[in-house]
Design a protein around this nucleic acid. Structure first.
Lengths: 347, 347
DNA sequence: CCTACATTCGTAAACGTTTACGGAGTGCGT
DNA sequence: ACGCACTCCGTAAACGTTTACGAATGTAGG
């Protein structure tokens, strides 16, 4: 493979000049720069990243850590692929590359992260699936590795993150349903006492009480946020003595299972039960009746995530002076047929 | 951050000895090795990968290139995540790490690959989504970069690959359906003249003719291999003057859309039309009636892919002496309800 | 006591790049 | 003729690690 040395010999100039020419340094004759660039193209020279990293102490690579948990694989919503395109559009401007780091399911995410960072494979990290207390966040903070998190956490006082607006969605959904005459509204939440479930249900409760509707714990269906979870949620809904007229799903994908279970009992979403979904899962886009759903532009989310990260890296800070922090990502309601009916009209 | 120099000073021995101790070289006293390892653990020392890579000319990182095409995102089957776990189980034994390299959709995959390789971010590559003529394969072959491909190609005479047994599946499916009395069997194929479609349909045709059933081009439904494609396939099936009694899907995911379209017309899969799927798509696992389908263990596929790659790398070749090449991956039929009826019994 | 050998360790070069520093050449004003 | 500023380029050190080589020590055999 051709290194900078071969390139310099071929051009009969010193490697220092070649390097400066390639890196756009000012103290090099424009004519020589032209020759160097031409020769580099001709010989197919690309700088060896190891040498460069060693010298300047940075790799120009950003890592996106993902966990290949069973749940991720089963849900299969390609959430991350959607985000990467937005991330890359930002990184490309600075010649940064993005790699996805899949943490093996049998390895502790914290250890995996430490290894990747210590080996200096990446300069900065994007982490996701944040836990309520997340050792990764403490580690990255202390080690002063630039990072952003996709998801809130209670760990480490102050770090940049973006999270979805669970509270806004629940509030909006309840308001919308109430406006259509619904009084008995169910909601799904993760079985664990996760942060996001707390926010989601809390906001739902406040919205109900604002309209003098008593909060009924029986209407909070705790199931897994997956297609099967949706199936089970429908099953539990049908068991209730006083059946709700509407249900809010914390994860769009659940609608697939929910629809199926409902249809099995001859209940048609959008006619017999209003359904509103949340989050973005491409596979749920083609349901019938179409799902009313709060959607995200994963691309835009990736862009903001990338900007926020760079704003936290000294070398790029100046490019993103007014980049926000701790963004609560708003979602847009895409109306469908699944909540199209007014209860008032029926009663 | 602590480097090998700090570690050596702390122990009051030379950095050469520290390095040898850490790397398990024989010419170091066991007592000193113990001390070094203890100190490394205590100080949290991890070798800087840039320095190491530079010296030994290898990065100990394997790249899995994925394309975030629109189709991938929409299909959302997490095929790659499933494969990575198998890959990592092999790589972990040799302290190799796996990174996923998502090629931006606006960049030429060939250029992207060249960049990643030239920058020496990875030692070896796993590529997928191979095209009939694929410049990446020619490039990697010429540059002598170890690689394996997930998918066949007509490029570059001789390279290691694994591909799914399209021919075996089509053959098996046809035989199975004929044994149950079906004579009019439809099949789906990609709209493009892709390699795999050619193999799939070709084998289907030969199996039919083996049983003296004339090949009817009208029964080859050319649609996209996606959920929507399945919907459209069903639609086209219903238009046919003489409706088939069975259909073979080239991609399991299509079953979701197909089912929906069929149900809309009151046709029940497994009772009115036999359906057999192919490939592994977790989201299709929960269909009702359950889908008869040729499934893969993505984990096992990953394991073999990893082994095949290492067998092509000088440093690891000896560990995998009898690793096969050019594997046509066999699939196992997981019977379901969707093809459970005998046409003979009805007629 | 000398030689031969094994064990253990230190020394220094090398990997490919970037960059601080200084030198050579030129032009210009005094 | 001299000094100065400016442009352009070469030199060499540095990044953190591995490893070939040889030095030092100990041990055993003659």
């Amino acid at each position: 493979m051709t290194g900078i040395r071969q390139l310099a010999e071929h051009l009969d100039i010193s490697i220092g000049t070649v390097s400066r020419a390639l890196n756009g340094k000012p103290d090099v004759n424009e004519e020589t720069r032209r020759r160097v660039l031409a020769a580099a193209e001709e010989l197919g020279y690309v700088a060896n990243q190891s040498g460069r990293s060693l010298r300047q102490g940075e790799t120009k690579v950003i890592g996106l850590m993902i966990e290949s948990s069973k749940e991720t694989v089963e849900n299969a919503d390609n959430f991350f692929l959607g985000v990467t395109s937005g991330l890359q559009s930002v990184f490309a401007r600075h010649k940064l590359d993005l790699v996805m780091l899949p943490c093996p399911s049998d390895e502790d995410p914290h250890e995996y992260l430490k290894r990747m960072v210590a080996r200096r494979i990446v300069d900065a990290m994007i982490i996701s699936d944040t836990q309520r207390v997340d050792r990764r966040i403490d580690f990255l903070s202390r080690a002063k590795i630039p990072f952003v998190a996709l998801g809130r956490s209670l760990s480490a006082g102050n770090f940049p993150w973006i999270d979805l607006d669970f509270e806004g969605v629940a509030d909006h959904a309840v308001e919308r349903l109430i406006a259509r005459g619904h009084r008995r509204i169910a909601i799904t939440a993760p079985s664990s006492e996760a942060n996001l479930g707390y926010l989601f249900v809390g906001s739902y409760r406040r919205a109900l009480e604002r309209h003098d509707i008593a909060f009924d714990p029986a209407l909070v269906i705790r199931v897994k946020s997956s297609e099967q979870g949706g199936y089970q949620a429908a099953h539990e809904l049908l068991q209730l003595e006083e059946r709700p007229t509407a249900v809010i799903l914390i994860y769009e994908l659940m609608a697939i299972g929910l629809y199926r279970r409902l249809m099995e009992s001859g209940i048609l979403p959008g006619r017999d039960l209003a359904v509103i979904g949340f989050r973005d899962a491409p596979r749920a886009r083609f349901l019938q009746p179409s799902l009313s759903c709060f959607r995200i532009s994963l691309y835009d989310l990736g862009v903001d995530l990338g900007r926020m990260l760079l704003a936290n890296m000294p070398a790029y800070r100046d490019f993103y002076p007014d980049s926000g922090r701790d963004i609560i990502w708003p979602l847009e309601l895409v109306p469908g047929e699944s909540d199209a009916f007014d209860v008032g009209a029926i009663v």
